[in-house]
């Protein structure tokens, strides 16, 4: 049985694509973003056990060398996430496609579809293809929320059952992209073009950082010229909430000023992205 690590499932979400959607967050990420506000989703637990002694309600223990999480006892204080040196979480469940389907079954009548996210859910492409096939049989749509590392063009089986991809373009200048996310920008931009060409670019998102005029402008201009009015362009403000302290020192303690961010919405529209908006 194919299994994938699931961080959590939110039955109803209004911010992960159009309509009401169930969001499924997978664990593990190819990127390592400085401004990540869910850094505990970056890697899979390596059972080092450091978190065990910190849990105030003893909801974590070690069994057969693996960390076991007691969801009943857990009080969601997030201490384990804060102390994890590996950007991981012990509160992850390895699930089969059937497990996931069972979990989302009750939400099905109320939702327009599902969105898989992460971490980076495209670490598990064949799992997604199987999940999407089953969900689509029930008349619901399936969206991927992706960082753009995965080569979608190489996976027609997945693209057949995927209704759209919400793609992050965090930066376009190669060295800045690498510095920001520890990964090359080239596959992201290749995906941008590919998804546009097959009509499966659901939306593009860019986080506007404080005091990064040149980088912000370059990214917004590039994306806007590429996508034009063909899909929404979501301009997101950087918020320090959830960001690791050591990265907050680099990225800043202040959230991006809304007026400043709004200026990039205007820039985006000027450069052709007619559906640019800020959240």
């Amino acid at each position: 049985m194919k299994k994938a690590p699931v961080n959590r499932i939110i039955p109803f979400s209004n911010v992960d694509g159009p309509g009401n959607r169930t969001s499924i967050f997978f664990q593990g990420c190819t990127f390592h973003c400085l401004f990540c506000h869910n850094p505990e989703t970056m890697t899979c637990c390596r059972s080092c056990g450091i978190c065990l002694s910190y849990c105030p309600v003893k909801a974590l223990r070690k069994k057969d060398g693996k960390i076991v999480w007691d969801s009943e006892a857990c009080v969601q204080c997030d201490t384990c996430l804060k102390v994890c040196p590996h950007f991981s979480s012990p509160r992850v469940t390895w699930m089969t496609v059937e497990d996931v389907l069972n979990q989302i079954r009750r939400a099905m009548p109320y939702i327009d579809g599902i969105t898989t996210s992460g971490g980076d859910c495209t670490l598990y492409p064949s799992f997604l293809a199987e999940l999407f096939t089953a969900v689509k049989q029930q008349g619901k749509t399936c969206l991927i929320d992706a960082n753009g590392a995965y080569d979608f063009a190489s996976d027609p089986a997945l693209m057949d059952v995927c209704d759209g991809v919400m793609l992050d373009v965090k930066a376009v200048e190669p060295s800045w992209h690498r510095e920001l996310v520890s990964f090359d920008v080239e596959p992201v931009l290749r995906n941008l073009d590919y998804l546009l060409s097959v009509g499966k670019l659901q939306e593009v998102r860019t986080v506007i950082l404080p005091n990064r005029d040149r980088e912000n402008s370059e990214t917004v201009q590039f994306v806007s010229q590429r996508i034009g009015g063909r899909c929404p362009y979501k301009i997101i403000r950087y918020r320090p909430f959830g960001v690791r302290p050591e990265y907050r020192r680099i990225m800043g303690e202040e959230e991006t000023d809304p007026v400043y961010a709004e200026s990039f919405v205007l820039l985006a529209r000027e450069k052709g992205a007619s559906e640019a908006f800020m959240v």
Partner: peptide, 10 residues
């Protein structure tokens, strides 16, 4: 309150 929760991971 029915909260959306922050999207993880990005």
């Amino acid at each position: 309150v029915q909260h959306h929760e922050e999207s993880a991971g990005k």
